[in-house]
Structures are given as C-alpha cells and as structure tokens.
C-alpha cells in the first residue's frame, strides 16, 4: 500500500514536470499556412496546394473545408491565412470586417455552375427560375404540376453553412431580387454535402437538389435551366458557364485580409496562372476566361 502511494506521488510529480516539456517539443519552426472555407472548393484547394508545394518544397499549406461561412468566420477572427468562399461577403460582413480591423479583399479564382439534379426516372427535363423558386419555397409540392408524374417533390438543400445554400437562396429562391424575403420551405432537407445530395437524389424518385457542376455523376439527371419561361433552356457545362448563358453560375473566391505573406502571394499568382487554371478545369470547375 505504501509503495503504491509512493509510486502515485512519483508519477504525479513526473507528470507535472514532463507535460509542459513534451508540448514544447512539438512546436515547429516552419509555418503551415491555413486555408479554410467552401466545401465546394475544398478538393480544388487541396489540388492547388499539392501542386504548389511540389513546385515550392519548403512551403507548407493545409486546406480544410467546413463551408464558406466557416471560412469567412475564420478570416474575420484571424484563425486562417486565406479563406476560400463560393459566395461574396454580405454588406454586413464587410462592415464587421472593417470594424474589427480586418478589411477583406475578394479575388475571383474560378467559376462554378450550380447544376439542378433529379432522379433519372423523372420525365421533367427543364425548368425555369420561377418554377425552381416555387419548388424550393414549397409552393409547388407535386411533380404533376410541372408535367411530371404524380409524385410528391422532395426538396434537398445544402446546410446553411454552405456558400451554395446562400447563392441558390439569393439567385434562385429569391430570383436575384435584393429585397425579396422568400425562404427555403421549412420542409426542405438540409444536407451536409454535395455528395449526400447526389446520394439522396439517386435513391429517391421525387427528389430535386442542387450541387456544384463538379459533383454531377451519371446516376442523376441534370436539368436544363432558363431565366424565364420564354427560354432559352441551357444545359450547364464549361462553355455555357464561362459565357454566362447558363443562369446559375457563380464566382469562386479567395478572401484575404490585410497585407499578404509573400508565400500566400506566390500561391495566389500560381492559382491565377495557367497551371492553377488547368487544375480548375481538371476538377470540372470552370476556369477564368483567358485575358
């Protein structure tokens, strides 16, 4: 018993002495740059970072997702070096940033088209923005109202931390009208990722959802979309998104705050250069037009 006590005492003293030492040992002297934000862009960001680190072996960059909102919150609180966002900042957020002493700069690094997808068995092939708005606000509840089968519509949206959620809300649900107050139907399912929307659409005949063009798979059907009932109905692809014919495309952004570290500046030049834009294309996003 006595020995046990001594042993315990020895252990606790050892712990107190060595715990701080061991944590110090982990501190490194090379800085890892943190990039956070859009889930839509996380694969793209990782591909950029990998290629950049291959070209600059001494640079270290970590890219993580979490949603554009997460990235914006992180750049505002200074916990990342660069944020990836698939939506522009709101006026309120810009004002907040300026007040907190972190004025934010947005740089367009690519484009993304948001594809509207349904189950392959669905006879509907095209919708206009007004119809989409009516579906996502819950005014139209059955596919037969749109010339489809007599089947209730299952509305799938991304979760609120997604840039795609906010973009789709502003451009489609509210039809691009600034003052509009339409909301996603409260019956809309909030899905955690592009992948989970594809998963749900391919297994559910009545489902409709929206995803980044890069996530379209052959198991789902992509709808043609028009600005108004008059047409023209446009299929989303590289050319229609770049030319702006396809109505639901958006810029992919880098958000930076204050003066940029030279490494981050190199990184930005790399992303905007031919190598970076080639990666955009490989990952099924839309590269910027050659100037």
């Amino acid at each position: 018993m006595k020995r046990l006590k001594k042993c315990a005492l020895f252990l606790s003293i050892a712990l107190i002495i060595f715990l701080p030492v061991s944590t110090f040992a982990y501190a490194k002297d090379t800085k890892t740059f943190q990039i956070k934000g859009s889930d839509t862009m996380v694969n793209l960001g990782q591909a950029w970072a990998e290629e950049f680190m291959y070209q600059h072996p001494d640079a270290s960059i970590a890219v993580t997702g979490g949603g554009s909102g997460t990235g914006i919150a992180a750049i505002l609180s200074g916990t990342c070096d660069l944020a990836q966002s698939s939506r522009s900042l709101h006026d309120e957020e810009l004002k907040n940033a300026a007040e907190m002493g972190h004025p934010i700069t947005e740089t367009v690094v690519g484009l993304d088209a948001v594809a509207v997808i349904v189950h392959p068995s669905n006879p509907v092939t095209q919708l206009d923005v007004d119809q989409l708005s009516a579906i996502f606000t819950g005014k139209i509840k059955n596919w037969k109202e749109l010339g489809g089968n007599d089947l209730p519509i299952l509305v799938l949206s991304r979760e609120r931390n997604s840039g795609t959620h906010v973009f789709f809300l502003e451009e489609i649900v509210r039809r691009g009208i600034k003052k509009a107050t339409e909301e996603y139907s409260h019956e809309a399912l909030m899905m955690p990722s592009n992948q989970s929307i594809v998963q749900e659409v391919k297994s559910s005949e009545g489902a409709i959802g929206y995803i980044g063009l890069g996530y379209v798979s052959p198991q789902v059907k992509v709808l043609d979309v028009a600005k108004s009932a008059a047409g023209p109905y446009v299929h989303p692809d590289l050319e229609t998104a770049q030319s702006g014919e396809y109505p639901i495309s958006r810029p992919l952004l880098f958000l930076t705050s204050g003066t940029l570290d030279p490494v981050m500046k190199d990184y930005m030049d790399f992303v905007l250069g031919p190598d970076g834009q080639e990666i955009v294309k490989i990952l099924d996003f839309v590269p910027l037009k050659n100037k």
Partner: peptide, 27 residues
C-alpha cells in the same frame, strides 16, 4: 434530414437542437 419543420409524424425529417448547433456553429 435536418429540416426545421414542426413534426407531425415520426416518419418526417426533423432538425434537432444538437444538430442545429453543430451544423451552424462554424458559420
């Protein structure tokens, strides 16, 4: 399913308090 509706049946999608915090805290 995370749809923030008032549930009327157990076979509907719902959004719980915990899931709301987890999903929205980052943003």
């Amino acid at each position: 399913g995370n749809a923030a509706r008032i549930p009327t049946s157990i076979t509907q999608p719902v959004r719980t308090m915990t899931a709301t915090i987890a999903a929205e805290m980052g943003e």
